[in-house]
Each structure stands twice: as C-alpha cells, then as structure tokens.
C-alpha cells in the first residue's frame, strides 16, 4: 500500500489519522533529539506537544518549499523548545495532587529498581548480564513466546530450580525429556530460558507484568 502524502492528509480526516500514526516514530525521534532524552512516562508532555505540532504542520504545509519531514521537523522542534522555555520560567510550583502523584510514581520506581537490581545480581551468579541477553534472546516473537513458556514451566518444577541454583545451568537433558522440547532450541536459548525461569521463580512481579503481554496474547488466542 502506498503511503499517504501530506497533501492527502490535509484534506481527508481519515488519511490524516493514518498519516499521523505512520509519523509517530518520526515525532519521537524529533522530540528526543531536542530534549536529549528518551520519551518516557515522565516526559510524555513533550511527546504530546510534538504530536500536536505534527498536526499543525500538516495544515500549514503547502508543498512548495521543501519536503514535509524537513518542514515538520522545524515546526516540532520550535514548539517543543517553546514549551521547555515556558516550563523553565514556571519553576517548581507544584499542586498537592502533583506531589502525591510524584510520591506514588517514585515508590513504584523504587520497587522496580530493587527488583531489577536483585535480578541483575542473580544473572551475575550465572555468569552473564542483560547486555549478554541482547545477543542470545530469540529474535522472532514466536521463539520468544516459546522460550518464555518453557521458562515458566521450568520455574514450576522445584527439582529443576534447585539444580539450576546449585549447578548454575539448565538441566538440559531432563528438560528435553520432560517437556518434549528440541535439544537444539534449549541449548541455543539456554541463557534466556534460564533468566525467565528465575524471573518467575523469584516472583519478580513488575518484570513479570511487563513481559506478561506476550503470554496474555497467547491466552487470548487460545480462548
């Protein structure tokens, strides 16, 4: 399907919606390059301003001067810079609700950080880090689902987990026998499977919640 042009988006509301959706990564990239930070839940205001600026750029673009992206980049950057200047001038005048929200957020993030720190220490005992997992985690989403499911099942087997913490490795042969898994698959993704087993065995609830979407998606499909 051909992508929608800015001119089409200008005149047709449906095309505009699709056009904006297609340009979300572009907005994220532009906003992030102005702020020097990643877009996150803590600075989503800037992201909203970026999206609004994109919408305005569609209206203002006449196609005569430059490419739409070049034009929109200038519009988004200017708008975000204006917002940041205003925020700086405003200073730290927080309402009571702002303070309560910040405390709640902070307590969540402390729990999260503690959980990740503990998980990091466990991985170190097994001789690898998150950085190593980048290279060994399954690339295809189906393989990741399969590995996560296997890790969950291993975590439910007490004997397996005792062996893992003692020997610092997966009992590959027994896993292959019990779960009828391919030996190659277990060997190939053993670090990833082991990490998932630890997440579920140690009940790292925030991380479990984070990756739970993959499994939940499966459950919806199977229903």
């Amino acid at each position: 399907m051909d992508s929608i042009s800015a001119k089409e988006a200008k005149i047709d509301p449906v095309s505009r919606e699709v056009f904006i959706k297609e340009h979300i990564p572009f907005v994220i990239y532009t906003v992030s390059s102005v702020t020097g930070r990643y877009i996150s839940t803590e600075n989503d205001m800037e992201y909203s301003i970026g999206l609004e600026a994109l919408n305005n750029a569609i209206d203002a673009y006449d196609g005569s001067t430059s490419k739409f992206e070049t034009f929109a980049t200038t519009v988004i950057k200017n708008r975000v810079i204006d917002f940041l200047r205003k925020e700086n001038r405003k200073g730290y005048q927080l309402s009571e609700s702002d303070v309560m929200e910040a405390i709640m957020d902070e307590s969540d993030s402390v729990d999260m950080r503690m959980e990740i720190a503990e998980f990091t220490e466990h991985l170190k005992k097994f001789g690898f880090t998150f950085d190593d997992l980048v290279d060994v985690s399954p690339k295809h989403v189906d393989s990741r689902k399969r590995a996560i499911r296997l890790g969950m099942r291993i975590s439910e087997n007490e004997n397996f987990m005792t062996y893992i913490y003692k020997e610092l490795k997966l009992p590959v042969s027994n896993i292959v026998k019990l779960f009828k898994e391919s030996r190659r698959f277990v060997y190939l993704h053993n670090k990833y499977i082991l990490s998932i087993a630890v997440i579920f065995d140690k009940d790292y609830s925030i991380i479990k919640e984070w990756i739970g979407d993959v499994i939940r998606g499966d459950e919806y499909e199977s229903q």
Binding site: Y38, I39, S109
Partner: peptide, 11 residues
C-alpha cells in the same frame, strides 16, 4: 536522565 526501570520510547 536515564534511570534503571524507566520506560522509554525509542526508534
């Protein structure tokens, strides 16, 4: 401003 545990959107 990167923090462990923060959710970020990246391209």
């Amino acid at each position: 401003s990167m923090r462990i545990g923060a959710d970020v959107i990246y391209t």
